[in-house]
Computed example of a mutant assay.
Amino acid sequence: MFHSFVFCCLCFWCLAGVFAGTETVKSVSVMEGNSVTLNSDTELKEDDVIQWRFGSEKSPIATINRGTGIFSTHDGPDGRFRDRLRLDHQTGSLTITNTRTTDSGDYQIRAKIIYRFSVAVYG
């Protein structure tokens, strides 16, 4: 009986790890000077609030608040994205225009779930 209990606990523990701990990172490559779109794979709802972040510091670079009608982009901590970010108002996808090698790095969209992207810009 005890062994069955332990076996069941181990199975549930493994399943919890599979569903709660898995995180996928989408890898995206783009040639310098081209545009790249990071797709949120969702349709925004009336009250959705999402935020795009960049880099290991997770600096905010774009915010959408459908409830208040706010769709804003930020230049980034060092101004690297100045006038080069576009938000899709229907899906929340982020497009980076005229990419540079300094745009390479980790991007994250925080909504009801978190999506992560690893972008590589090559010359």
Rank of each mutant, 00 (worst) to 15 (best):
S29V: 14
I96V: 11
K26R: 13
H74N: 10
S93L: 05
T91G: 00
V28R: 03
Q90A: 13
N98F: 03
S56I: 12
K26I: 12
T91N: 07
E32K: 06
I50F: 04
N65F: 04
T102I: 11
G92N: 10
K112G: 12
G21Q: 01
A16Y: 14
I50H: 04
V119K: 06
K45Y: 04
G105R: 04
N34H: 09
I61W: 03
T22G: 12
T99Y: 03
L15S: 10
Y115P: 01
H89Y: 08
S40Q: 09
T102R: 02
D106G: 10
I50P: 06
D78V: 08
E57A: 10
D88H: 09
R116Q: 10
S35K: 07
V121I: 15
N39Y: 12
V119M: 12
G21F: 07
C8S: 14
Y122D: 03
A20Y: 15
G21W: 07
V18W: 11
K112Y: 09
G33S: 06
V30G: 02
Y122Q: 07
D47Q: 10
D106Q: 14
K45T: 00
N34P: 03
E32S: 04
T99S: 05
L10H: 03
S72F: 09
L10V: 11
T91E: 06
W13Y: 09
E43T: 13
V36Y: 06
P77D: 15
T102H: 06
S40N: 14
W13L: 13
S59I: 07
V28M: 01
K112D: 13
L94R: 00
G55Q: 08
T68V: 14
V119W: 08
V119T: 08
I70W: 00
T97W: 00
S56K: 13
A120E: 11
F12T: 11
T22L: 07
F5Q: 09
